[in-house]
Design a binder for these strands. Structure first.
Length: 398
DNA sequence: AGTCCACAGGAAGGGCAGGCGA
DNA sequence: TCGCCTGCCCTTCCTGTGGACT
């Protein structure tokens, strides 16, 4: 009874922390977008011809995650539609995030999604893809209008289904009589465009926009702007914002990361019933986010990767560093005990490299002369994360 | 100077589950 | 429903290599 009472009182106290938590989520569009004035202006200039019924150039936007690409495109698109409605021109914007599993991750699904945006339902499967293209053309060409198709995370789509789809989509324009179609492609893979077929490349990237990472000061401004909406007054210290900005700036100026940090810090404060968000909460949030991503990553690794990592953890309990050979021996023992068919040494070598890539371990290739060449493996994660993962794996295997 | 260890890591391809599209 | 395709995990076979030892 008293326990529940405490939970509820803490919650009510917590209410004094967040005013509007959504302001810290990625889908939130603030009234003014900071430090992207140049990009907004450029994109605006590129898309403006749509207002007089001309086809704007296709645009290719790239920049790392959390640099405001989607936010700016959506913002400009919304404003464009608003003005178009005011002056009676016909502009329609369709936003497609190509990474949505089971929704927009194949050619067929994307076309079905676009048709759906036009209010036409098509079966999940069954129709020839060619038929969907025909229907899309028919739908767009129904009236005189300019359709702007935003393909977010376009690299994920091409990775999955090949670049043929982009060729097909850019080609649609030639079949339109009344309407016009422009494409905005967004990617955070900076080398994506160089890998494309030259004919697609030239038609898709008539214009290019680059979104540089935010620096610590810019992140600070963004956080301050959002914090004002998200938190009650006086709840968040300046130092808190600065810390979030500094951490995110170190990690490639990712604004999403910065906002996540601030949100989680606020949630921790809320849950503990504290009245203010402090720098300690940010530290805890940083730790929590890191821990969660590490644990999620290892959970989704294949069985043998987990076994290899378990072997490394077990060996490092008694040694400061281990070599590939040590890991292989221990791993084989574990497999024998659990009656699991082991993978080859070659495969283990790759698994170790993967674990290093994910940031679980550090590896260094060293030569021991007569005693061969090997990788020296040390742990990169904190003691706390190590314990969590260790007990998780232990529970799984025994 | 040459040898040789204990691997690193590239290339090619097998096999299987599950998804896709007609 | 069913054949085909894809992605993932893995194997096989292989060449490369830094430096202690002879």
């Amino acid at each position: 009874m008293t326990q529940l009472h405490e939970i509820f009182t803490n919650f009510l106290n917590g209410q004094r922390i967040f005013k509007n938590r959504d302001a810290l989520s990625i889908s939130f569009t603030p009234e003014t977008i900071l430090h992207r004035e140049k990009q907004i202006e450029e994109l605006g200039k590129i898309l403006a011809p749509a207002l007089i019924g001309c086809k704007p150039s296709n645009v290719f936007i790239y920049g790392r995650t959390g640099t405001g690409k989607s936010l700016v495109s959506m913002y400009v698109a919304k404003e464009l539609m608003k003005v178009s409605r005011e002056n009676g021109s016909n502009v329609k914007v369709i936003y497609v995030n190509c990474k949505m599993k089971k929704v927009t991750d194949t050619e067929y699904r994307i076309l079905a999604y676009i048709l759906n945006e036009f209010g036409e339902k098509v079966p999940f499967t069954g129709l020839p893809t060619e038929e969907l293209y025909k229907r899309v053309v028919k739908k767009i060409d129904e009236k005189e209008q300019v359709v702007i198709l935003i393909l977010d995370e376009i690299d994920a789509l091409v990775e999955k289904v090949g670049d043929e789809i982009l060729y097909n989509i850019t080609r649609l324009n030639q079949e339109l009589k009344k309407a016009k179609l422009s494409i905005i492609g967004i990617t955070n893979d900076l080398h994506f465009i160089t890998r494309l077929d030259p004919r697609i490349k030239s038609s898709l990237s008539e214009e290019e926009l680059v979104f540089p990472p935010y620096n610590a000061n810019q992140l600070k401004d963004i956080l301050e702007q959002r914090a004002k909406i998200a938190f009650h007054e006086g709840v968040v210290d300046k130092a808190v914002i600065e810390k979030c900005a500094a951490i995110a700036a170190q990690e490639h100026g990712d604004a999403r990361r910065a906002l996540d940090l601030l949100r989680v810090a606020g949630e921790i404060a809320e849950r503990r019933g504290d009245k203010k968000v402090t720098v300690e909460h940010v530290d805890m949030a940083h730790e929590k986010i890191e821990r969660d991503t590490f644990i999620e990553t290892i959970k989704h690794q294949p069985l043998h990767s987990q076994l290899v990592f378990y072997s490394i953890l077990e060996l490092l309990k008694t040694k400061k560093e281990v070599t590939t050979g040590d890991v292989i021996d221990f791993y084989l023992e574990v497999c024998k005990k659990l009656s699991i068919k082991p993978v080859t040494e070659r495969r283990i070598s790759d698994l170790i490299a993967e674990l290093s890539f994910f940031g679980f371990i550090d590896t260094k290739v060293v030569s021991k002369g007569r005693y061969g060449r090997t990788r020296i493996i040390t742990l990169r994660i904190s003691k706390e994360i190590e314990e969590k993962i260790y007990s998780m794996l232990l529970e799984k295997f025994y």
